[in-house]
Amino acid sequence: MRNYSEVEFLEKVLSIPSVNGKQDTGKLAEFLAGYLKDCGLSVSLQKVDENNVNVITILQGKTKEQVIWNGHLDTVPYGELSKWHTDPERPEVKNGRMYGRGSSDMKSGLAGMVYVLGQMKRQGYVPRQTIHFWGTADEEKGGSGAEEMLEEYGIPKASLLLIGEPTDCCLGIAQKGCVWLKAGVCGKTSHGAYPEEGENAVMYGFKLYETIREKLHRYSHPLLGKPTIQITGIQGGIAPNMTPDEAELCMDIRTVPGIGKEEILLWAKEEAEKYRKYTQGRVGIEFQIMNYRKAIETDEKNPWVQKMQHVIKSETGEGTKTGISFFTDASVFMKNRDDIPVILFGPGKEQLAHKPDEYVEIKTYLQYIRILRRLF
């Protein structure tokens, strides 16, 4: 395999489609594995399912200290193609930017990590820490790649979990969690002209949503702001002139540290019990957690935070700490532990993720690579 330049390598990674649910991640995983092997590293490919493959390699360091680098291989779909000014499947460089699906989220972070790791091995450089690289599939949907990695390999005792998600080379030390809550509401039907004779399941579902929203807004985080909640799906109703006796609501809840699924479920069940008593048992609600990712935060005084802030500032002139509102594979890897600091750090821009005309600034991508080299 040829010895790519930094930009050529990114272009190659972006030119291998890996849309979640459309293409598998196997071709991209094989390309990354081939590059790392050509650089002299031993690589494993872990089959997650028919469509998803993980990439694992280790670069041995001088000490027993271990760090984990993680990036996901999959992207979201392209969306409406007419809204793109470039082909999302073919990377294109214009005005110092490289366009293409995944350029910000997060193939630029992925490519930078793999490139630096391969070049360290190719050049015979031995880092201080042993670096575990985990390239995961299916991050954009169910996180099955991270789950499979966790089940087969577990998490080593590491001093850092570094994830190349888009932060525009800022220091990401916090991320929101996520709860997808489904509520099934049972009420009582009646003629639309006599609503007092029924119990409107849709209205009780909306009332539940408003109560949870009010409780969430009592919380805030200096980097993440307030938690959010929105109804992302609703079904209910029989006819325009009938009180609906059944409803199903899906709610997307983004949490901050200090709020987990336990708190959300407690609030929801307490409210449901109030409705049951008030209506003398005519209203009942059942709940289901469709997805849960916990919120994550790393102490600003952590040595890695201090070190990275210094290196980033000397390279870019900025050392801004930030938080991100979307969840990452960190919430899978760290779901049962809190002893490994998590830092989100990548060259992409969060605000471009999942949108048409997604791009990464080539200057920022090259800065990212230089920072990784200086850190490790």
Results as ranks from 00 to 15, higher is better:
Thr228Asn: 02
Pro91His: 08
Arg2Gln: 12
Gly284Arg: 11
Ala272Lys: 02
Phe9Val: 05
Leu181Asp: 01
Ile369Gly: 04
Thr167Ser: 02
Gly319Phe: 05
Ile296Ser: 00
Thr228Pro: 10
Gln280Val: 12
Gly135Arg: 00
Glu80Lys: 13
Pro347Gln: 01
Pro341Thr: 06
Glu6Cys: 14
Ser18Asp: 05
Gly142Ser: 14
Ala158Tyr: 07
Ala174Trp: 00
Glu152Cys: 15
Gln60Arg: 13
Val116Glu: 11
Lys176Ser: 06
Met149Lys: 08
Gly323Val: 03
Gly284Lys: 13
Cys178Thr: 12
Val202Ile: 15
Cys186Gln: 15
Gly205Leu: 05
Gly172Lys: 00
Pro341Ser: 03
Val256Gly: 01
Ile340Ser: 02
Gly177Trp: 02
Lys62Gly: 09
Ser103Trp: 07
Phe9Thr: 03
Val48Thr: 04
His310Tyr: 15
Leu73Ser: 02
Lys226Tyr: 09
Glu300Tyr: 10
Ile234Glu: 09
Pro303Trp: 06
Ile362Leu: 11
Ala111Asp: 02
Leu375Val: 09
Phe287Gln: 04
Lys301Leu: 12
His85Pro: 09
Lys64Val: 11
Asn20Ile: 11
Ala239Tyr: 10
Ile16Pro: 03
Glu151Met: 15
Phe376Val: 14
Thr63Gln: 07
Gly236Phe: 04
Gln123Tyr: 14
Ala146Ser: 08
His217Trp: 13
Lys141Arg: 14
Ala183Ile: 01
Leu366Glu: 09
Ile285Pro: 00
Gly346Ala: 06
Ile16His: 07
Arg374Ile: 11
Cys169Ser: 10
Asp87Thr: 04
Thr86Asp: 05
Gln66Met: 11
Glu273Thr: 13
Gly145Asp: 05
Ile369Phe: 04
Val13Gly: 00
Thr316His: 06
Asn291Cys: 14
Ser159Trp: 04
Cys186Leu: 15
Ser331Asp: 02
Lys363Ser: 11
Lys188Val: 12
Gly233Ala: 13
Glu92His: 07
Cys169Trp: 04
Trp69Met: 15
Gly225Glu: 00
Tyr368Leu: 06
Ile253Cys: 03
Tyr99Trp: 09
Glu210Val: 10
Gly40Asn: 08
Lys301Pro: 12
Gly71Leu: 01
Met334Gly: 03
Asn336Ala: 11
Leu224Asn: 00
Gly233Tyr: 12
Leu224Met: 00
